[in-house]
Design a protein around this nucleic acid. Structure first.
Lengths: 232, 232
DNA sequence: GCAAAAGTGTTTGGATTACACCCATGC
DNA sequence: GCATGGGTGTAATCCAAACACTTTTGC
């Protein structure tokens, strides 16, 4: 069977990456968005994303693009789903992959650069109409995040370095959209390797909580020995 | 910041889809492969896959490609991971997405067509060197399958329409590479809506087993009511 | 003392595990 | 009868949910 078009004419698509950056702060998950100073969808909010260069590896392209648009560096981006409806980009066939990352919101100082006119964190449950099919991308990538939160200790990417157990619980309550029993939550996380720093909160008008830290070395060991499976 | 190349020059990539078809039979999972009658990698085994047409939706392209190469029709393909190393295709930048499907091996009669010289089912744990990066694609898609088997009732796509509980157990043992206790397995699956057909196996030299059927309507109802979560 | 959140213990019922046992069929 | 797998019951244990309770801080 012959192709309906010449082989060489297949090489007429572009490939882009969109970087969905989830940031956590005060019990809420936000997404890092940019205001487009470029056509199409000029002036609209969008996920930071751009076209991949011909010689670029996808994961390094994702980091480059994020840095170019928001000056955010050094976050670990994970590949996500692919979006490729023929008409999703008005200027041609652009297929995109949604990379995503999890960060502590105040570890990351995003600054608009390149063709981003403005950057902003918007709460994930309150996202306006975005450019292209970016609303769909955010929604389905957020679902992916929630799946991962259940099976991998990625909550510690979102929490502050030193966190209270209540902060951890709130993150899970927010992302699963449910209430959890304090005592049971603490029993459940007993098996996760946490370091009790024996430091206290201060300036709180109630009994100060202990601060904890994720023991990622110990976690790596446990996984290595196949003696532990994270599950929430 | 200006692009390092002209905007129009980004539209020089091709996008392909590879269809990883998992087929189950006699306690083993196989993948449907084709022998390439086309350069590059002519004569090598590969995952059935091809380039997406400019106006084509990804999921319909996946079905079309599978049918063109193997005459297999009507299987439900799920989107998978994206593979896009710059040098993965010798003829240009081709980014691919690995769609996958689960079938009963003997429901599907694959016949080589188009530029496929031959088709064959090969056991997933015994795949030879394939074209391109297809070994990597198979491996990581098989992992994805195993993940899904734990969380979604897709085992019934692999099992015969009428199956014995032991056949079901064997499928899980094979994909999780473990042994399960018969009595406990049966207790665990008590919550899955199965229909006992009150039919027996025949021509077996032991006590004939009851045949079961997955009650997909009941399952859909339960999911709708959010009263049930599949988990193995 | 009071409010507010930290932090712990107890009970209960349901699931998971390990293991033993009986049943039906072909040869 | 015996080999082979089909099919079930039980007891011990673990785990999750519900809920009550004590502790420590600021004001």
């Amino acid at each position: 069977m012959a192709y309906k078009i010449k082989f060489d004419n297949f090489f007429s698509y572009a490939f882009s990456l969109d970087c969905v950056i989830f940031g956590y702060e005060k019990g809420m998950i936000h997404a890092l968005l940019i205001k487009r100073a470029m056509k199409p969808f000029m002036g609209d909010w969008a996920i930071p994303g751009d076209l991949v260069y011909p010689d670029e590896d996808l994961s390094s392209a994702a980091s480059r693009i994020l840095t170019e648009l928001t000056k955010v560096e050094g976050v670990k981006l994970h590949p996500g789903q692919t979006f490729g409806k023929p008409d999703r980009h008005p200027q041609g066939r652009v297929i995109t992959n949604a990379y995503f990352a999890l960060v502590r919101k105040d570890d990351v100082h995003a600054v608009a650069d390149s063709w981003a006119e403005e950057v902003n964190w918007l709460p994930i449950r309150d996202i306006p109409q975005l450019a292209f099919d970016h609303n769909e991308i955010i929604e389905s990538t957020f679902e992916l995040l929630c799946q991962k939160l259940k099976r991998e200790p990625i909550c510690f990417d979102l929490l502050p370095e030193k966190f209270t157990l209540n902060e951890m619980q709130q993150l899970y309550e927010y992302s699963f959209d449910s209430r959890l029993d304090k005592a049971n939550f603490r029993k459940k996380i007993k098996s996760i390797p946490l370091i009790n720093l024996n430091e206290k909160q201060f300036n709180v008008k109630h009994r100060p909580a202990n601060l904890f830290k994720f023991n990622s070395d110990r976690y790596a060991e446990l996984v290595e020995e196949e003696k532990y499976l994270f599950r929430m």
